Deep mutational scan, measured.
Amino acid sequence: EEEEKKKEEIARLLGVSKEDVERILKKNNLDIEQLLRRVQREN
């Protein structure tokens, strides 16, 4: 699934687990696209 791939990509870029990414998304109330763009910009 596309969303899972995005979570895995974010996890890889941040050096965290996919579960961490899911927690970040919930905690910050971000959607996956916003987080992915933010992470890609910083790297």
Rank of each mutant, 00 (worst) to 15 (best):
V39Q: 01
K26N: 08
E2D: 12
I24M: 11
K26M: 11
I32K: 01
K18W: 06
E33H: 08
E42F: 07
I10N: 00
K7F: 06
G15P: 00
I10L: 08
E19I: 10
L36V: 03
K6S: 06
E2C: 06
L25D: 00
R41I: 08
E22L: 05
E33W: 06
L36N: 01
R38D: 15
L14V: 02
V21S: 00
G15K: 09
K6V: 12
D20S: 09
L25S: 02
V39C: 09
L25R: 02
N28P: 03
N29Q: 09
Q40D: 04
E1C: 05
V39H: 03
K5R: 14
L14Y: 03
N28S: 14
G15H: 09
L30I: 12
L30H: 04
D20G: 04
E2M: 10
E22V: 07
E9V: 11
E3I: 14
D31Q: 07
I32V: 15
K5Q: 12
E2T: 12
L14K: 01
E1R: 12
E1D: 12
V39R: 00
K26V: 13
V39A: 11
E3S: 11
G15W: 03
R12C: 09
L25C: 06
A11K: 01
E2Y: 09
R12A: 09
I10P: 00
N29W: 04
E4Q: 08
V21P: 00
L36D: 02
K27W: 10
K18F: 07
I32R: 01
K6W: 13
E2K: 08
E19R: 12
E1V: 12
L30D: 05
L35W: 06
E9C: 09
R12W: 08
K7S: 02
N29G: 13
L36P: 00
R23Q: 13
I10C: 10
K5I: 12
V16Q: 03
R41H: 12
R41Y: 10
N28L: 15
S17F: 04
R37S: 13
L36M: 06
L25H: 01
I24Y: 10
E33G: 05
V39W: 03
L35R: 00
S17Y: 04
R12G: 07
K26R: 13
K18E: 04
K26S: 10
E19A: 14
R23A: 13
E8C: 03
Q34K: 06
R41L: 11
V16G: 03
R37E: 15
Q40F: 04
L14G: 00
E2H: 09
L30S: 03
R41M: 14
K5M: 12
R38G: 06
I24V: 04
S17E: 07
E3P: 07
R23M: 13
Q34P: 01
N28M: 14
R37C: 08
K7A: 04
L35Y: 05
K5F: 11
N29V: 04
E33T: 05
N28G: 11
I24W: 08
N43K: 08
D31G: 08
Q40N: 08
R38H: 15
E8G: 10
L13R: 06
I32L: 14
E33K: 03
E22K: 03
L25M: 11
Q34L: 06
S17I: 03
K6D: 05
V39P: 03
K6I: 15
I32Q: 01
L25V: 06
E42M: 08
Q34R: 06
E42P: 08
R38C: 09
D31I: 03
E4K: 07
K27G: 07
G15F: 04
R38T: 14
E19T: 11
L14Q: 01
E8P: 00
N28H: 15
K26D: 08
V39T: 04
E2A: 11
K6G: 06
K27E: 15
K18G: 04
E8F: 09
I32A: 15
L30E: 14
E33I: 04
V21R: 00
K6H: 08
R23V: 14
L13Y: 07
E8T: 10
R37T: 12
I32P: 13
L36C: 05
E22M: 08
R38L: 15
Q34N: 08
E4P: 03
E9M: 13
E8K: 11
E4L: 09
N43W: 12
I24Q: 03
Q34F: 05
R12H: 08
L30W: 14
N43G: 10
K27Y: 12
E19C: 08
R41K: 15
G15Q: 08
L36F: 07
E2S: 11
I32N: 01
K6R: 05
L35V: 03
R37H: 14
S17N: 07
V16P: 00
K7V: 10
N43T: 12
L36T: 02
G15N: 10
R37K: 15
E4C: 08
E8Q: 12
K6T: 09
K26G: 04
E1G: 11
E22T: 07
N29Y: 06
D20K: 10
K7T: 04
N28I: 08
L30N: 05
D31Y: 03
R38S: 14
E2N: 11
D31A: 06
G15M: 06
Q40C: 07
R23W: 13
E42S: 06
L35I: 02
K7M: 12
R38F: 15
E8W: 12
R41D: 14
K5E: 10
R38K: 15
R23C: 13
A11N: 00
K26I: 13
R12I: 08
D20Q: 13
L25Q: 02
I24T: 03
E2V: 10
L35F: 09
R12D: 04
E3G: 10
V21M: 02
E9Y: 14
D20N: 07
D31P: 05
N43F: 14
V21E: 00
K27L: 14
K7D: 01
E9N: 05
E4N: 10
N43Q: 15
L36A: 04
N29T: 05
E42V: 08
L35A: 02
K5V: 11
E42R: 01
L13N: 02
L13A: 05
I10M: 03
Q40H: 07
V21A: 01
E42Q: 11
E19P: 06
L30M: 14
N29K: 09
R38N: 14
N28D: 14
V16H: 01
L25Y: 01
R12K: 10
Q34S: 12
D20V: 15
E9K: 10
R38V: 15
E9I: 14
V39D: 01
L13Q: 04
N29L: 06
E8V: 10
K6Q: 11
R41Q: 15
N29M: 07
Q40P: 02
L25A: 10
E33N: 09
K6L: 14
D20C: 08
R12S: 06
E33C: 07
V21Q: 00
E8M: 14
N29S: 08
K5N: 11
K26Q: 12
V16I: 14
G15D: 04
E1T: 12
E4D: 11
L13F: 06
V39N: 01
K27T: 13
K18A: 06
L35G: 00
V21D: 00
I32H: 02
R37A: 15
L36W: 14
S17W: 03
R12M: 09
N29C: 10
L13W: 07
D31T: 15
N28V: 08
R23D: 13
N43E: 09
K18T: 11
K27I: 13
N43M: 13
R38M: 15
E33P: 02
D20T: 14
A11Q: 03
Q40A: 04
L14H: 01
Q40G: 04
I24G: 01
K7P: 01
S17M: 06
E1Y: 13
Q34D: 14
V16W: 06
R23K: 11
E4R: 07
K18Q: 06
N43Y: 14
S17A: 07
L14D: 00
R41N: 13
D31V: 04
Q34V: 11
E19D: 10
V39S: 04
E4Y: 05
K7W: 05
K27V: 14
E2I: 09
L36Q: 02
R38Y: 15
K27S: 11
I10Y: 02
K27R: 13
D31W: 02
L30T: 07
R12V: 08
E4W: 06
R12F: 09
R37L: 15
K26W: 09
E42C: 15
Q40E: 11
L35S: 00
E22W: 03
E1I: 12
Q40T: 07
D20H: 12
I24A: 03
L30K: 02
G15C: 06
I24E: 04
N43P: 07
D31M: 05
L30A: 05
L30C: 05
E1S: 13
R12T: 08
E19K: 12
E9F: 11
E19V: 10
L14E: 00
N28E: 15
E22F: 03
K6M: 15
L13E: 03
V39Y: 04
D20R: 11
L30F: 09
K26P: 00
K7G: 01
E3R: 14
I32S: 07
V21H: 00
K27Q: 14
D20Y: 13
L25I: 09
V21K: 00
D20W: 14
